[in-house]
Design a protein around this nucleic acid. Sequence first.
DNA 1: AGTTAAAGCAACTATTTGTTGCATTAGTGG
DNA 2: CCACTAATGCAACAAATAGTTGCTTTAACT
Lengths: 201, 201
Amino acid sequence: MSDTDVMERPTPQKRPGGRTAEVTRRIHEAILELLVEGGIDACTFQNIASRAGVERSTLYRRNPDRWPTIIDAIIDFAERETAPHDTGTFRGDLTATLRNLARALNGPLGPALITVAAALQTGVAPGQGERFWASRMERLGPMFDGAIARGELRDNVDREAIFSMAAGPIYFRRLIAAKPVGDDWVRLVVDEICGRYCLEN
Amino acid sequence: MSDTDVMERPTPQKRPGGRTAEVTRRIHEAILELLVEGGIDACTFQNIASRAGVERSTLYRRNPDRWPTIIDAIIDFAERETAPHDTGTFRGDLTATLRNLARALNGPLGPALITVAAALQTGVAPGQGERFWASRMERLGPMFDGAIARGELRDNVDREAIFSMAAGPIYFRRLIAAKPVGDDWVRLVVDEICGRYCLEN
DNA sequence: AGTTAAAGCAACTATTTGTTGCATTAGTGG
DNA sequence: CCACTAATGCAACAAATAGTTGCTTTAACT
């Protein structure tokens, strides 16, 4: 009560363990289910809360905006689904990565993935788009590192450019053209990328 | 009043002229503005109505679902922006088309375009995705027709596949990787496509 | 074991959604 | 120009959702 500690606000220590982690898990699970069932429109705080068995106020207190919440769930999913590949060749790694991507996009959550990613560019959630993309590229680091170490790629290649050329047609075919993405399509893309960027050997 | 015409409901004749057309124009304009300013979340019937100076009930009566309404505005925009190109070569036409696409995507409405297109695949608006895509491909018909007629492409090429390979990286780079799409990027894509699909000459 | 984040609970207001009956305007065909 | 009526305007609804808040309970950390 003394006036000496009026200004003291000892920065509340976080408690991310146990219950909190479980609540987070349930929230993410609920969001993914809702995205599959009803798309973005279904992802209201109300729906998320009741589906996850969590209080609505908890969601608002964690983050008053629903977009960062949704992004968290998506990134969480993407990181769980994105297994690292090390086949020994860039071609093999890229093929595995794109097959993995195609599998995710072909699945029920595919459309929601790009809907969210695209929505991030509309200004609804400043900074979240970069967060998502950075998370994606970080997972691809080892693939490029290995290829460069083996001399398959020049060490100054534009990694984002290469991945954009590779993943672009995969995304597009599934989500704009609404066509299935099969192994043949993946192989076509891989051939183009390797033919253009891989050093001769 | 006779019972002879009880079943007669002479399918009310439409009146698409004058006022109705003007209202449609204002609605589309309002939607595009809202998409630019606040993304999908801003496109509520309430916002659209007040922005367009139209009664909310009119929107509900025209279509109780907001997605077809939004798609209409997007398609309308896309068709207005998509000028036909006839440069005399497939490479020229494709370059012009992709530059056009890049320009649209680089603009303020770019992110909204793909957000909507992607949202269509989530089941929020059955059939609307196909409608959008069909509208897009239809505009590209002359380009392929001309190229085939000139012998630059085989007459059995998969037009959708080619356009997916071309437009995919454009979309991706702008809207997932959030990088600008410059002429250099367009040229890179064009080189790949032409190198792979154009017949030698 | 004590401290205190963090979640639960409950009540509340404001906003948005979706609907409907009636009045008014104006496109269309004669 | 007139009559008909589709389409919009207007206004008043109920229902759902969005946010917010004070208090209680649980359980993560030291």
